[in-house]
Design a binder for these strands. Sequence first.
RNA 1: GGAGAGGUUCCCGAGCGGCCAAAGGGAACAGACUGUAAAUCUGUCGUCAAAGACUUCGGAGGUUCGAAUCCUCCCCUCUCCA
Length: 344
Amino acid sequence: MPVGTLATVKTLSPAELRDIQAQIILGNTYHLYLRPGHELVRRAGGLHGFMSWDRPILTDSGGFQVMSLSGLRKITPDGVRFQSHIDGSYHFFTPEKVIEIENALGADIIMAFDECPPYPATRAYVENSLKTTLEWAKRCRDAHRETDRQALFGIVQGGVYDDLRVRSAEELMKMDFPGYSIGGLAVGEDKKDMFRITDLLNDILPKNKPRYLMGVGTPLDLLKNIRNGVDMFDCVMPTRNARKGSLFTWKGKLIVKAARYKEDFSPVDPDCDCYTCRNFSRAYLRHLFSVDELLGMRLATIHSLHFYLELVGACRKAIIEDRYEEFFNEHAENLDRLIDNDTG
RNA sequence: GGAGAGGUUCCCGAGCGGCCAAAGGGAACAGACUGUAAAUCUGUCGUCAAAGACUUCGGAGGUUCGAAUCCUCCCCUCUCCA
């Protein structure tokens, strides 16, 4: 899922998103509540109407912002008191409030309000935080009942503590959500911990419901976590890195703004059929970044999102054809490397 | 012709006897980025056989233990007045 925090996948139009086969995109409760305000979005016809995107949307609950804006909030059992990162104004988020906002935003899939523990965090902190998250999940589900045209996912927390993760998943499953998110990973912990936990949850979460690993990740992270049973991902990496001149390809990461591509007139990836690779050279992209032209960010974003969606599309195909391991072994090694001078 | 200001490391620009290979900014170069406070942040940025040495602050001389900083002459810019 391409990330479109503020009701826009940065730099792209909905038409361009459709061109690269985006099926669903993400929005963010906290950010859209602050600006332009969820009631305004409701009046605009929900996120779909407001941003003119007629395919599915998922909204995150703001739980992640509870962590990432940690200097600006205070957590209580009832909810979180936030200070706006924009103007310093105070706001109080409860599970009920978050559901109200997400109802107004009108996404197809919405997230329960959770508390995402930072890393590192003590076991005592994570255990306490998990307790809060589970209570909030229940309150979210209760508050959401009457508007069940939106699918509400519960979020598994528990940090890097296996037993807490298991407890989290089992308690959420009792609440019978239509899908389960895995949160609190890729926040600084060792990769081994991340993979161990998704592997652990693979045997616990129901097989007939989607599992969504929140905020992950690199192409290789996707491949490894798909092997561990994850069905859905979102990550800012393809879009954010693209805006900074760093692109993803099947052959690895390519920092197209680098001087080594100044006179490289080959496409970013000769085998890629995205709009960018079909029409423009590395040298041209490098030039656009070098002179700080907007089109550079757009073309780069188009390429990297296309690549990510192609990557997961290829994963789906391999799974259906029952040859995922083979597919994995074929590509895993390349995905992680830095292309330093490959003229195509 | 008269009066004045100034020439600093790729650029702009501070420094005005030692703590100066020389602030700061820009450019350049390399990289980071994982439920987006992100068109952001970090590092490098005179040379070398490199915890040391060497060469730099328009040029040439000089003063001094020591000069980008003081003195002399020269070269060159710019502003104002004729």
